[in-house]
Design a protein around this nucleic acid. Structure first.
Lengths: 339, 339
DNA sequence: GCGCGTTACTAAACCGCGTTACTTTTCACT
DNA sequence: AGTGAAAAGTAACGCGGTTTAGTAACGCGC
């Protein structure tokens, strides 16, 4: 920096002011130009660590993905989320640190990032319930935004309305005349996305005056297509086979579809199926999957924006943002065939 | 740190030695324990920026994805790659900075990360040809590993053998008796993955003594399913329709399949199709897509490992690692039907 | 021609927080 | 008394941010 100052014929202070565009300082346009020219001539760039040390900011946010490697492979959302978050934070010249953490929430997996001041805030995708680590950090006023339903009220979050969306999906099946409607969860029930979608399924059935039977509810513990496959196998073995299935994620639906087709049944003639997520490739499945569309990129953008506001000490209102979903009707659902 | 030293009744120097587990220093087990206890009592964590400033290392590598947001959405590889890289670098306690850069290679998009010492090395996924920025950085001995074919020889890289793999895919079609085999590229030809797969297609045809006709080669400029769809439409309009298609990516194949099915034709009865990539959901397409399987996670792991070696001043041999692919035969290919 | 307030800087010092090389002390053991 | 291990202590970095005090030139009004 001293060299730049010498080259431009100014002081180090002036160089710092120019580079930071510090407000309330008077520096002539000519001098500013000389400084920038010197910076260019010397190919100078300020060391990130030094700036960070001096300012107390890391200009970095962590994107914490609570998934194990296996799940990561079939995560159709990742690209969209990352893209959205990156867009939102790049405006403030922030960068993104990617971190995948398993479900076991081992001690301080991401707390360290905050405590060493490596990141200024956290975006957490898919937290488990009872995440005490998260609660403690929030109590210490660490900027945190959750993608999904937060564990406790005060946490900032961006999500879709899983209950309402699931209700819409199931209502669609009811409207088509189906009565024996099964449900396969997208993951274990300690994940709120899973339990909320199950709740939406229940509500839709009850609203329609239909029974909600445990035998038609399959808890898939894995988030994977394989889990959907196995769950569907169980459903197909029931004496009174369901005529429609609400699979709480597209990936799970893919597994279920395979099971159905392997059993020699046809979609939607024999069984209708609705997914959830509308991952980019859902429309290429034959038959095209009817599903709930989630605005993935927007989820990322809003989360990024909220986090930046928190970091800048300007708490966003409201705490919890719910983005709209919509039912995309393709060809995996059809009216109940009287038999 | 001084407080920790006081609490443990030792000097700051000793605390540093203990925390770093510095070799060639003699510190008794009892003292080490006292230091750790003090760290725990005070809930102390060293500031990342200060360490980075003192050591000259950022313990961070950048993962640079050369894709625009739209492409990101349909990138089935991202999860696997990130997972692999993260695994490989976490052993050395490194973290990953995610950065998406478009194709226009605007000035210094990632050079800044290096020059400000924000990262110690770069992993670049899908570079364009003629990336002078990359060349300059490599000349300055910046640790760089490319996922894909590098622009110039000396660059370190991990890739699959696109030429050979494409040859295998096309050979499979030839073995099934097909003669009119079309090709849809996965992207523009300035991407080496695209031009190499085209080259493999050419070689397979030539080896078999078959003509290689331009009309059967469709350059898809977008990397997307939509591009595959449009390319296939052109192929279907040809007077002598191809009986088989080699689509250079699964996503492109999905688009092509839609075009084929919309035209009222059947796969594989009327047209066989082979993809490339074997993205996790490729098997769920009906009919299951025959494709070239790429070991995605391994690509990430090897890239991460090589980069860590470079950072530690231990240049990996060889420069260029080619991972094996394999043909996965599902149900989108069948013997040529005599007609 | 004087006084006064701006404007446009400079100089110097301190700060943030560990790392690391080098010197010195303490103390147990032979 | 001599030796080596186990530390303590000191101080110099690394690099930019920020503040304080001060200087010099300039314009303006009267």
């Amino acid at each position: 920096m001293q060299q730049v100052a010498d080259e431009a014929g100014v002081s180090r202070t002036t160089v710092s002011f120019v580079l930071n565009n510090t407000p309330n300082v008077n520096i002539s346009a000519a001098t500013r130009a000389r400084v920038w020219q010197a910076v260019a001539n010397l190919n100078y760039a300020r060391t990130f660590a030094a700036r960070s040390l001096a300012t107390g900011r890391s200009q970095t946010v962590a994107f914490i993905l609570r998934q194990v490697p296996d799940e990561l492979l079939v995560n159709g959302f990742l690209g969209g989320l990352l893209s959205g978050v990156t867009q939102a934070i790049s405006a403030d010249n922030y960068r993104l640190l990617f971190e995948a953490v398993g479900h076991d929430a081992s001690a301080g997996a991401y707390t360290e990032l905050v405590r060493t001041q490596r990141v200024d805030g956290l975006i957490i995708s898919g937290p488990v319930v009872d995440d005490t680590e998260l609660r403690d950090l929030h109590r210490e006023s660490v900027p945190i935004v959750v993608n999904g339903k937060p564990d406790f009220e005060e946490l900032y979050s961006v999500d879709v309305d899983n209950v309402a969306s699931a209700r819409t999906a199931v209502q669609h099946l009811i409207d088509l005349g189906h009565r024996r409607i099964a449900h396969i969860t997208n993951g274990p029930l300690n994940y709120t996305a899973s339990s909320d979608r199950l709740e939406g399924y229940r509500q839709a059935l009850l609203n329609a005056g239909l029974p909600c039977e445990d035998r038609y509810i399959q808890i898939n513990p894995t988030f994977t297509d394989q889990g959907g496959y196995e769950a569907m196998r169980h459903l197909l073995d029931l004496p009174e086979r369901p005529t429609a299935v609400f699979a709480a994620s597209d990936v799970v639906a893919f597994g279920a579809i395979r099971a159905i087709q392997e059993a020699g049944l046809h979609i939607p003639a024999d069984i209708s199926i609705v997914g959830f997520d509308d991952i980019p490739l859902a429309s290429y499945l034959a038959p095209g999957l009817t599903t709930i569309h989630i605005p993935v990129v927007q989820l990322g953008v809003r989360a990024g924006e909220m986090l930046m506001q928190l970091i800048q000490g300007d708490p966003p209102v409201p705490h919890r943002v719910l983005l709209e979903t919509r039912l995309v009707i393709r060809h995996s659902t059809a009216p109940l065939r009287e038999s």
